[in-house]
């Protein structure tokens, strides 16, 4: 059940979040440019539509699942009980 929950949540680490965002922006801009240029050169708007939709689907596939590449820099927490907790001073 936890495994299923992890799959749905798909949490990735901070470094992975930065990479995912950059990848998403670059791929989508590239998709838009290629779609426009191909449609313009071939003089057919259907190429633009299908390249745009296809590129977006590929971007989704690359960015949305929690790929191992997005989990390479896990946050390392300090082990429990290694810091002293200051006692509250009564006033």
């Amino acid at each position: 059940m936890d495994a299923l929950q992890n799959l749905i949540d798909g949490f990735i680490d901070f470094e992975g979040q930065k990479r995912a965002e950059q990848l998403c922006n670059v791929l989508l801009v590239l998709t838009g440019v290629i779609a426009y240029v191909v449609g313009f050169v071939l003089q057919d708007l259907t190429y633009t539509v299908y390249i745009g939709l296809g590129g977006t689907a590929l971007t989704m596939l690359a960015v949305v699942p929690p790929w191992p590449a997005f989990k390479k820099n896990p946050v390392t927490w300090l082990p429990a009980g290694t810091t002293e907790v200051e006692e509250k001073k009564e006033q």
Partner: peptide
């Protein structure tokens, strides 16, 4: 971009 749902939203 921390979870699947947020990544779908941002990409779309």
């Amino acid at each position: 971009m921390h979870s699947t749902a947020v990544r779908i939203q941002n990409a779309f």
